[in-house]
Design a binder for these strands. Structure first.
Lengths: 226, 226
DNA sequence: ACAAAAGTGTTCTGGGTACACCCATGA
DNA sequence: TCATGGGTGTACCCAGAACACTTTTGT
């Protein structure tokens, strides 16, 4: 055990790449950093790991503190540890990505932290290596969306196939053939048609669907060739 | 900056999941832990991150120290941070996986550390969460092998298609149709046929191939449906 | 002669893609 | 009536899987 003491100790942080989906665009929740260094510059939500807290727990805590939400999807992306990644002092950071329904996001938190939902492909420069974290997270999100239905994480609990398709188009930055997309998604057997229709987005009105309760966590076949 | 000081600091380690390939089997290099706690139990190669050293650099250093090799393939897998993952003292660990050619591995290192190449699917229980690290690394390796040619990392510089297929069968724990596998691999355009033949593994003798020099780092199309 | 890998060719199928087409309805 | 999305059907193409078959050579 005395073998341990001679080694250096480090501040370890988590940074959260928080994805939301709104107005046909994939968005990211970022905020102006509240303290030095780089105070005021755009940054991901982050925080230091505390004693007796795992990085998963720390990420969930940061998310709770900054968005008011818990029990949301969170997945580790990668650890960033370049010794000069923060100019003033060395910090090792574990990046996480989160998927949240913007509708559930508490607006008052926006005021509290000055946070802003920003379209992913128009992001301003972020501090340190946060832009790189975003890039890697987007890749992970694409991978995840490729074999599990991210609809339930990013869309309201009921959604139309148009909405689901637009979401996938936003994630992959490409378009999908409406007919083929519909058939593919339905063929997976994870969607349940509801009796309700949505008439706000088309004249005819489209049926709502939801993810079947038992399929929410199911790992599906490859959905999108990727 | 004074904001930083109030937060706890942690020992941060790297653990290396070292894959090799020998006698038709995918193997892992593990060794008996040299110090308490859990001294003598089977463990991955690991070490603490030093000042001014990134986790990537630390992993490369550990690999160099324990195998004598450098410039080998290394990729971050995940960070393990459960507060009780080591019984005596809290250590956060970043897991890496490495691919090495066993032929290049210095045998003297085996004696020095008591290390042993162990078939992946017959692993003994390892300390702490090291078995979980291995599982995740194997998944990452399968992913990597699915769209880049791991032959150049794990096989000698020239190899037959039988050897390459056996390697893929070991990685995916399944069999591939010899004819189809051959056609698929050749169709990628990343292999170069040599004039030499190998006669040790078949009566007829099979031509050696090597990965085209400019294709070693190329990200290829999806090779294996996965 | 036979076994076993090397190497090539053929057939079949399923999924993806492109695209045509009808339906419903608000403006 | 026309534009727009909703929803269904069809034809084609290609990659993968299965498998037949021929070649070579050591035993």
């Amino acid at each position: 055990m005395e073998f341990y003491v001679q080694h250096p100790r480090f501040l370890v942080a988590v940074d959260c790449v928080i994805f939301g989906y709104e107005e046909g665009e994939l968005k990211l929740l970022i905020y102006p950093r509240a303290f030095e260094p780089e105070k005021g510059k755009w940054s991901l939500m982050g925080g230091f790991i505390q004693q007796a807290e795992s990085s998963d727990e720390a990420a969930a805590r940061v998310l709770k503190e900054t968005t008011g939400l818990n029990e949301i999807f969170l997945e580790q992306v990668s650890t960033f540890s370049a010794s000069d990644r923060e100019p003033s002092e060395r910090v090792i950071s574990v990046a996480y990505f989160a998927l949240i329904k913007i509708e559930r996001y508490k607006k008052n938190k926006t005021r509290e932290f000055g946070a802003k939902w920003w379209p992913v492909n128009e992001l301003p420069p972020l501090i340190f290596d946060h832009n790189e974290m975003v890039l890697q997270s987007l890749k992970k999100l694409q991978q995840k969306a490729g074999h599990s239905l991210v609809g339930s994480e990013l869309l309201p609990s009921k959604f139309t196939l148009l909405q689901l398709r637009k979401l996938y188009e936003a994630i992959y930055q490409r378009s999908f053939d409406p007919g083929n997309f519909r058939k593919k998604m339905l063929s997976l057997g994870a969607l349940e048609k509801l009796d309700q229709k949505n008439s706000t987005e088309s004249k005819k009105g489209a049926y709502y669907y939801r993810v079947k309760p038992d399929k929410t966590e199911l790992e599906l076949e490859r959905i999108i060739k990727y």
